[in-house]
C-alpha cells in the first residue's frame, strides 16, 4: 500500500507536485496517468525518498521508504530515467543490488531468465536497446520479491511482445496480492492493464477512479450540433456536468448531454438546429479532455495522442 498525503514538491520556482493525496491499494493494478511533465516521475521519486517533499508525506506499507530495514523486499521500483551504470553488465548490476540485502546469486539468475536477458547478461548494459534496458530495470525492481511494485512508464521502448508480457506480469503481481503502481501517459495502455486510475495534471490530482467508471464516463455521448445561433444555444445548454468544445466553424461539441436533451432544449428555447449528430469519444479523447486545462504546452498534446 502506498499512501501520499498532501505531497508537494518545488523545483526552483516550478511546482512539480501540488498537494497530491491518494492511496494505492494492494491486489489491483493502479494506473498513474498524466501527460508528460505532469509530475508522475517526481511523485515516484518522492515515494522512494530519492527527493524530499517540500511538504506533505508519502509512506509505503506504513513507513517512510527510508525507514524500511529491507527496502527491496518492500518496494521494487523501475524509474523512468536510466538507473544503470553503462559500463556494468546486467548480471553485476543485479548482483550488486542483491548483495545489499544478502539475496543469493540464484535469485539474480532467476530474474535474468524471467525478463529474457539470459544471452546478454554479461554484456555491458550500455550496449542495450531501450527495451532491454527496460527489462533490466524490471528485473531490478522484482529482485527482492517486493510487496509493492512501482513502475514508471514500463512499456516505453518495449516491442508488442514485451508490452504483452509486462501486462500479464503486472496482472500476475496484483493477483498475488501485491500493490502495483504503474505510470503511463497513454490512456489506451492503462485501460488494458489497470483496474484503478489516479490521474494527475500539472502536479494536481484530477481523478481517482476505477477504470470502469472512467470508461463509462468517457463513453458518454458527445453530441455535435450545428446552429446559426451557437452562442445562445450554449447559454441554454450550460449546466453542471456539461461542457463544450468548439468544433469547426458553426459547430459545437456538447459533452454530458444526450442528443434528445440537446434537441429538446433547443426546441424549447426556439433555437434552430442544422445538425445534431451523436459521436463516440475515445478513451484517449476523454483523457485529453480531462487533462486539457492542465497541459502546459500544446505540443505535449501530440504525445498524449501518440
Amino acid at each position: 500500500m502506498i499512501e501520499a498525503s498532501n505531497l508537494t514538491k518545488d523545483y526552483g520556482d516550478k511546482r512539480a507536485v501540488d498537494g497530491l493525496t491518494f492511496t494505492v491499494q494492494p491486489g489491483v493494478v493502479t494506473g498513474f496517468l498524466g501527460p508528460n511533465g505532469s509530475g508522475k516521475s517526481t511523485t515516484m521519486r518522492l515515494i522512494l525518498g530519492l527527493d524530499a517533499p517540500k511538504s506533505g508525506d508519502a509512506t509505503v506499507n506504513g513507513r517512510h521508504y527510508r525507514d524500511h530495514p529491507a527496502p527491496l523486499h518492500e518496494v521494487g521500483a523501475l524509474l523512468e530515467a536510466r538507473s544503470v551504470h553503462t559500463g556494468r553488465s546486467a548480471y553485476n548490476h543485479l548482483l550488486a543490488l542483491a548483495q545489499t540485502h544478502g539475496i543469493p546469486k540464484r535469485r539474480v539468475n532467476e530474474m535474468i531468465d524471467l525478463v529474457g536477458l539470459h544471452d546478454v547478461a554479461h554484456k555491458r548494459s550500455g550496449q542495450f536497446s531501450l527495451g532491454m534496458g527496460q527489462r533490466l530495470g524490471i528485473a531490478a525492481a522484482l529482485i527482492g520479491d517486493p510487496k509493492t511494485v512501482l513502475l514508471d512508464e514500463p512499456v516505453n521502448g518495449l516491442d508488442p511482445e514485451g508490452i504483452h508480457w509486462i501486462r500479464n506480469l503486472l496482472k500476475g503481481l496484483a493477483a498475488d496480492g501485491k500493490t502495483v503502481f504503474v505510470s503511463s501517459h497513454l490512456m489506451s495502455e492503462m485501460a488494458l492493464t489497470a483496474d484503478h486510475l489516479i490521474v494527475i495534471g500539472r502536479g494536481k490530482l484530477i481523478a481517482d477512479t476505477s477504470v470502469e467508471d472512467f470508461v463509462a464516463h468517457a463513453s458518454q455521448k458527445v453530441v455535435l450540433v450545428r446552429s446559426p445561433d451557437l452562442a445562445r444555444l450554449q447559454e441554454t445548454l450550460a449546466g453542471p456536468g456539461v461542457s463544450f468544445e468548439t468544433a469547426e466553424r458553426g459547430a459545437l461539441e456538447v459533452l454530458g448531454l444526450t442528443p434528445e436533451q440537446v434537441g429538446d432544449a433547443a426546441a424549447a428555447a426556439g433555437i434552430a438546429l442544422h445538425e445534431l449528430t451523436p459521436q463516440q469519444a475515445s478513451l484517449e479523447e476523454a483523457f485529453m479532455h480531462l487533462t486539457k486545462d492542465e497541459l502546459e504546452f500544446g505540443a505535449q498534446l501530440e504525445e498524449v495522442v501518440a
Partner: peptide, 13 residues
C-alpha cells in the same frame, strides 16, 4: 542487440 530468450510472466517467490 535483441533479447532472444522469451520472458516468463510469473515472478518466482
Amino acid at each position: 542487440m535483441t533479447a532472444a530468450t522469451p520472458a516468463a510472466s510469473r515472478v518466482p517467490q
